[in-house]
Design a binder for these strands. Structure first.
Lengths: 110, 110
DNA sequence: CTCATTCCTATAGATTGTCAATAGGTGATC
DNA sequence: GATCACCTATTGACAATCTATAGGAATGAG
């Protein structure tokens, strides 16, 4: 077993995906690994969570995709942020900050 | 309308309820108001979210309830934390901190 | 007295996002 | 040419929240 796996809070996966694509184009599993790295191993996003999210977000117009070749010469579908996706990253980041502030202030109450 | 209603992140409602009952016994709507106050109006928990959560948490053994009278002389069901509930509050608080840290560190990545 | 209003609890139905489990194709390696 | 690691993908189940609606009970207005 892992050292206590932490489940995602529903709604945070989109933000993590957007953020992971902020700097570079990545393929599916690359996104997953990047998220694991960005969160210091706290969140492990599994395929059954990742791919539905990617499809959903592409549908929403935040991502675009193209087939390419991975570092290991395998067929891989790469994703990049669209313009709308960059906007959404800003929006969701702000929303997260708002939520995070509100929660922390609640937890500090006496 | 309000200044952009913020939806709860799934999983945070329990923690807010536990925390709201940390200091005093409250009835359902009292909990809702306390949460709104603790989060400076960020989270407005509506009955359709609140009551199912209360029932679920009582079922889980974190809360106990009794019928009493509200400040306005109305029949009201009061909730208090059980011993297990106090433990759960600690657990979920720590979990939130872990998640919050991971998210913030992800959002600060370049 | 009676009618409207506010307070409080409650449930039904729908939606949504995540998880667990499973599958299959395709390069690489030996 | 068999096995392994990599990569995408889907299915079915599940759980939590939201919207909308309901109704009882005390209060206050006229």
């Amino acid at each position: 077993m892992n050292s206590k796996q932490v489940n995602l809070l529903q709604g945070t996966l989109d933000l993590l995906i957007l953020k992971s694509l902020g700097a570079a184009e990545l393929h599916g599993l690359g996104i997953s690994r990047r998220i694991e790295q960005m969160t210091q191993g706290t969140f492990l996003v599994k395929p059954g969570s990742l791919f539905p999210a990617l499809h959903r977000m592409e549908e929403a117009g935040w991502l675009s995709s193209f087939w390419g070749e991975s570092e290991n010469r395998r067929r891989a579908k790469y994703y990049r942020l669209t313009k709308a996706g960059k906007g959404q990253l800003v929006v969701e980041t702000q929303e997260w900050k708002k939520i995070s502030l509100a929660m922390n202030s609640a937890l500090e109450a006496t």
